[in-house]
Simulated assay, not measured.
Amino acid sequence: MAKQSLKQQSYELIKSNIINCVYPPGTIITEDILCQELEVSRTPIREALNRLETERLVTVLPKRGIEVTNISLNELNMIYETRLLIEPYAILKHGCKISQQQYLHFYRIFESYQTEPVEETAYYEVDEQFHQLFIDATENSYLINTYQTVNSQISRTRILSGRASQDRLFYSTREHLDIVKHVLSNNWDAAAQAMEQHLQASKSSYFEYMMKQQNFLSTQ
């Protein structure tokens, strides 16, 4: 690692391992382990962990180490409460800043997903780009940083829940398509409402998965 970017690179590598569940929720890691894995000193590791703690990805446990935070039903509820406050608002107030060319780009993608199988990895990449489009349009660093924190948790949840059903992917892309149709018609109220409905459906899907997991574990 280059000296001038040790802090940032340490942060990005540890965060990537957490988001991609290389360090699964509940894992206890230590500064010594991270120093060995990243081949850096304690200072950039500690600074990276401080940032990750503010993003609710780790909890520093005195004399025990660093715990990768779990994703509970309460955590998931807070995540979607935040998204429901931010994303419909972003469309309603700032969606008009986005060009029609960008909207048409996503329209063509989501329309194609209605007639052909959706590859999950590709879908989630497009999904993140689409949602981020509205957040970036706000040009509000507070909203952008908050959304970044929330999106990291959503990425972890996707990996932990395994492959989504093709039915859910189909309906999700159709929900996205409805949003784009409304924005192309400059019907911002309807677009914001469609985004809210999409987020509620997404929340229900993840809640259903987590409830099944809890019921499974309780029978073991």
Score class of each variant (00 low, 15 high):
Glu53Cys: 02
Thr69Leu: 02
Gly95Tyr: 03
Arg51Lys: 12
Gln101Phe: 07
Tyr80Thr: 04
Arg51Met: 11
Asn50Ile: 10
Ser99Met: 11
Ile79Lys: 06
Ser99Thr: 11
Arg56Lys: 08
Leu84Phe: 02
Asn77Met: 10
Pro88Ile: 10
Asn70Lys: 12
Glu81Ser: 14
Asn77His: 13
Tyr80Cys: 03
Leu57Ala: 03
Leu52Tyr: 14
Leu49Phe: 05
Pro62Met: 05
His94Val: 06
Leu57Phe: 02
Thr54Ser: 08
Arg51Tyr: 04
Cys96Met: 15
Ala90Thr: 08
Met78Trp: 06
Asn74Trp: 11
Thr82Gly: 06
Val60Pro: 06
Ile71Cys: 13
Leu49Met: 10
Asn77Ser: 14
Val68Lys: 02
Ser72Arg: 11
Glu55Arg: 13
Pro88Ala: 05
Leu92Arg: 12
Leu76Cys: 07
Arg64Val: 11
Val60Met: 15
His94Phe: 15
Gly95Trp: 04
Tyr80Ile: 06
Arg64Tyr: 08
Glu75Asp: 15
Ile71Thr: 13
Asn70Asp: 15
Thr59Asn: 12
Ile98Val: 10
Asn77Val: 05
Glu55Pro: 06
Lys63Cys: 03
Glu53Leu: 03
Lys97Arg: 14
Cys96Asn: 14
Leu85His: 01
Lys93Cys: 08
Glu87Ile: 06
Thr69Trp: 00
Leu85Asn: 04
Tyr89Lys: 07
Asn50Glu: 13
Met78Asn: 15
Gln100Cys: 01
Gly65Asn: 13
Leu49Trp: 04
Lys93His: 12
Thr82Gln: 09
Asn50Met: 05
Arg46Lys: 09
Glu81Thr: 15
Gly95Gln: 05
Leu61Phe: 09
Pro62Thr: 07
Val68Ser: 01
Glu55Gln: 15
Val60Lys: 15
Asn74Gln: 14
Glu47Gly: 01
Gly65Lys: 08
Lys63Pro: 02
Arg64Phe: 03
Gly95Ile: 06
Ala48Asp: 02
Glu75His: 15
Tyr89Gly: 01
Tyr80Arg: 01
Ile98Tyr: 03
Lys93Asn: 12
Ile91Ser: 00
Asn77Ala: 11
Gly95Cys: 07
Cys96Glu: 13
Ser99Val: 04
Glu81Cys: 07
Arg46Met: 06
Ser99Gln: 10
Asn70Val: 11
Gln101Met: 13
Leu85Met: 08
Ala48Glu: 03
Tyr89Glu: 09
Met78Ile: 06
Arg83Cys: 02
Val68Arg: 01
Leu85Asp: 02
Ala90Lys: 01
Asn50Trp: 00
Leu85Pro: 00
Lys63Tyr: 15
Glu67Asn: 02
Ser99Gly: 08
Leu84Lys: 14
Leu61Asn: 05
Met78Tyr: 12
Tyr80Ala: 01
Arg51Cys: 09
Ala90Asp: 02
Val60Asp: 09
Leu84Asn: 12
Val68Tyr: 00
Val58Gln: 06
Ile98Arg: 09
Lys93Gln: 11
Thr69Pro: 00
